[in-house]
């Protein structure tokens, strides 16, 4: 049970946004701009960074839901999502994306853990300033979301099947704040 009085049976961030819609609106606007805005990185790659960081923060809800969204957006190449979660350095992804995931992993530990060498390595792999910015901000943003979701002990389904429709919704509709508890 969540630590505060939120609607029953509504999972994760959605229950918190129903408790506090005035802050939730801006949280969803940020997620939409960051993960669905025009950028060099694809929505699939950005969801993958979000899932990777959430996994490192041990946030089962965010990891499961963003991995589901990333699998959906990767389509035929969905296997890379589980490869990255299992062992990023061995995954079948570009060197550039590995360098950006490395920066996201450093940011997840602490902003101070990102070094000039990490940035230079990403540049040599072809990353632009915009992509480096997005990797850092996605990691920082999920370091917030993960703490919000787990710090209030929000409801986290444990059956992976429950995240499949969530991933489809996130891939197709993006980040639209919930307005009422979803009837089961």
């Amino acid at each position: 049970m969540a630590y505060i009085q939120v609607p029953d049976h509504v999972p994760g961030i959605r229950s918190l946004v129903l408790f506090s819609p005035e802050t939730g609106k801006h949280l969803y606007d940020l997620a939409q701009a960051l993960l669905r805005g025009n950028s060099i990185l694809s929505a699939a790659e950005k969801e993958l960074i979000a899932a990777y960081v959430s996994n490192r923060n041990n946030c089962l809800f965010c990891m499961s839901s963003h991995a589901a969204a990333a699998r959906c957006l990767y389509g035929d190449a969905a296997a890379v999502v589980d490869q990255v979660l299992d062992n990023m350095t061995q995954a079948s992804i570009s060197e550039k994306l590995k360098a950006l995931l490395h920066i996201a992993g450093q940011t997840q530990q602490s902003g101070l853990a990102v070094t000039e060498n990490d940035i230079q390595f990403a540049r040599k792999s072809g990353a632009t300033d915009e992509e480096i910015h997005d990797a850092v901000l996605i990691s920082a943003t999920f370091s917030m979301f993960n703490r919000y979701v787990d710090g209030l002990n929000s409801f986290t389904p444990t059956d992976p099947a429950e995240y499949v429709p969530m991933g489809i919704r996130m891939a197709e509709k993006g980040y639209v704040p919930p307005t009422a508890p979803v009837a089961q």
Partner: peptide, 26 residues
């Protein structure tokens, strides 16, 4: 209150974002 606990958690989480954004980009 529940709102005070909620806001404390979200403020702390938000500054975990800010601190990483500011230092992660040097």
């Amino acid at each position: 209150s529940d709102k005070e606990i909620h806001d404390t958690v979200l403020i702390a989480a938000l500054f975990c974002l800010y601190n990483r954004y500011v230092d992660g980009l040097g």
